[in-house]
Design a protein around this nucleic acid. Structure first.
Lengths: 240, 240
DNA sequence: ACCTGAACACCGTTCAAGT
DNA sequence: ACCTGAACACCGTTCAAGT
């Protein structure tokens, strides 16, 4: 029975929605999304699997809860602390770095964030916490961005984070387990791509952190141009 | 039996890998990824489902084939025609527009492109056709970019396309079918987000095409700065 | 050579029954 | 009130059997 052992120190006490979602996040972190099954998650919690349906509408809703929960970690991150920001540039930088930390902390969960169907059908759903979006729109409009530009910034910023972090996170977790992830048989042959071979060291090198800083700064510069008739805000000293 | 009727004019003749992958792409376009099942795909091809295993290693490998096939549509697109490009800027613009057309033509397939596990473990796998990556690296190095910068451009460009197109494509296909997509019960309430409500018209407005042009141009400007000691290439006239 | 029937181990989900 | 056993309809996959 390889999927037991839910909480480190937590009591073996009653199930509820919070505990189930938290367990699902830890389960995915440990075993990967493809291993998450209602019955296995039940076993992980010391319970029989169908018991979960008493607290959660079903598997799809559970996954939505997982995404929401992980994205909402932002609001508990002391290095983010969005309420006490020093201007919109600082706010967006904290947000970006906080979300990057989350993506790196939950690399198996993050692709789920990108691909779940939308919660509110009319809001393009990238980094899906409505709380997160609301907070960002508030800061941007308070900073003087028009409603239209605030929405445009939201789209640009979240598509940047989505693409960048998805790219960075994929290809991690190579050593997830002993023989798990059963090595899908590829249908194509990898030979015959000389430049891929020659540039291999540059493609696999891990310059992700620096790439991220540079791309983020370029985006913020671009956003600043939307602000009506003000000098570009002074460049901040490097965030942590 | 709602999942029959494979090819418009194609003969009902022998199965092979190509025909199966093409059918899978069309099936996903029509019914969505979540409906794709070996047995339903079999029925779609007028065959019994287990028959597919004679030509395809399994479901996972089939999905890899679907991704590869869709991304490789680029090489058949006459508006792309990457072999006859006029410099790297033109090449990247054609590539970007071609990939956007593909994403919009196969909105149900595109998220798969973003989330399949890597083919070659050392190449960060965004827009996964190795043929595509090889071609791009060749153009960039021929244009004078160092190996290191060519790899950096590949990462920046593909993460841009990944994030942007994933965002644009999600939230399409609302009317996929009559009562399909059984309206997952959300666990949270949508009320209490005043700015989301106020900016709703700006968030749902479809300015995607123009956004895309602007973000692409900004990225290309940024890439041009990597090219050693040359003036920025002249701005091209608006691509189609 | 290629497809099918039957079978296996496993899914998500429901619900009457236990405690 | 909360969990379990049994059941249902459906998965992916294998393989001996049909044609």
């Amino acid at each position: 029975m390889p999927f037991t052992g839910g909480g480190s120190g937590s009591g073996r006490s009653a199930l509820d929605q919070r505990r189930i979602i938290d367990a699902a996040v830890r389960f995915i972190d440990e075993h990967g999304l493809r291993m998450l099954t209602m019955q296995r998650l039940g076993a992980y919690l010391g319970v029989e699997g169908m018991a979960l349906y008493r607290h959660v509408p079903g598997r799809e809703a559970l996954l939505d809860g997982v995404v929401e929960s992980v994205v909402d970690e932002l609001f508990g991150d002391p290095d983010v602390h969005l309420e006490a920001h020093a201007g919109w540039v600082d706010y967006l930088q904290r947000l970006a770095h906080g979300l990057r930390r989350i993506a790196l902390a939950h690399p198996e969960v993050f692709p789920l964030v990108a691909t779940r169907p939308p919660a509110a059908p009319w809001v393009r759903p990238p980094l899906r916490s409505l709380r997160w979006i609301e907070s960002m729109l508030e800061v941007m409009t308070d900073a003087g961005f028009s409603d239209e530009n605030a929405a445009a910034v939201y789209r640009a910023f979240s598509s940047f984070l989505l693409g960048y972090l998805l790219l960075e996170v994929s290809g991690r977790g190579v050593e997830t387990g002993p023989v798990e992830e059963p090595d899908v048989t590829p249908m194509e042959d990898l030979a015959g791509y000389p430049l891929l071979q020659r540039l291999e060291p540059h493609l696999s090198v891990d310059v992700a952190a620096q790439d991220f800083e540079e791309a983020l700064e370029a985006l913020l510069d671009r956003v600043a141009l939307l602000l009506p008739r003000r000098r570009r805000p002074p460049r901040l000293t490097e965030g942590k």
